[in-house]
Simulated assay, not measured.
Amino acid sequence: MWEFIVRVLLGLFLMVVAIKDLISKKISLWIVILCIILLSICIPFCKALTLLDRILGISLGLGVLILSKITEGKIGMGDGLVLSVTGMGLGFWSNLELFALALAFAALFSMFLLVFRLAGRKNSIPFLPFMFISYLFLCIPVWSEII
């Protein structure tokens, strides 16, 4: 049951930050902090993942934060923060899967924009909506197990 609560919490979190990213291309730090607090309450009751797996999941987001600093903001700091939060709830491998799928969806969307000349190479797109879509896509098998 607690794993399900964590999954729903992450889904709601990703939905909120994706909408915020679409509208303002920024996310609020208080949303991230609130989700960290709520996850911290739920995680002790979850037995599916080890503490090491959760720490490694967070490290994936920290790696993106470092890349954001190196690229001087071409990769958003918010993307790294959100990836750290999802890593806390999903663990390393599921978080890596989420990130890779989101990158693939973003790449396909970018190619579409480039091919039809709707955007140029210098244009930026919000990444968090692709993380939310990827999360929904990855949760479909989980829903069938619950029902």
Rank of each mutant, 00 (worst) to 15 (best):
I125Y: 06
Y135V: 04
I36D: 02
S84G: 12
S84E: 03
S144H: 11
L29C: 00
F45K: 12
P126R: 07
S40A: 15
T71Q: 09
L14Q: 05
L90Q: 01
G91H: 00
S124W: 03
L96A: 14
I125S: 04
G63R: 02
S94G: 00
V17K: 03
V17S: 04
I75A: 08
A106L: 14
S24K: 12
C42Y: 12
K26R: 15
G78V: 06
S40M: 11
G87L: 01
L67T: 08
L90K: 02
V115S: 05
M15C: 15
I146P: 00
F112W: 14
P141R: 05
T50R: 09
T71G: 07
K20Y: 08
L56T: 02
N123E: 15
I75F: 12
I33N: 00
E3Y: 05
I70T: 05
I133S: 11
F132T: 05
S134A: 15
G91V: 01
A104Y: 09
G57S: 01
S59I: 01
V16S: 09
L101D: 00
R117N: 14
K122C: 00
G87Y: 00
I31E: 12
P141D: 10
L10K: 02
S59R: 00
L52V: 12
G76N: 04
M131F: 10
I66P: 02
P126S: 11
V32H: 06
W93R: 10
L14Y: 02
V16T: 11
V142H: 11
I70R: 08
L39Y: 02
L67A: 15
I75R: 09
I66F: 14
L65F: 04
G91N: 00
L39A: 05
L10F: 04
G61I: 06
L96F: 13
F112R: 10
R54E: 06
N123T: 13
Y135C: 03
L108R: 02
I146S: 10
I147K: 12
A104W: 10
M77T: 09
E97Q: 13
C139W: 11
K74Q: 13
A106K: 09
K69R: 13
F109M: 12
L29K: 09
V142S: 11
L10T: 02
A119W: 04
V115R: 13
L14V: 04
D53Q: 12
V32T: 10
L83V: 07
L67H: 06
L29Y: 12
I19T: 06
G80A: 02
M77S: 11
L22V: 08
G76H: 01
L38C: 13
K25I: 04
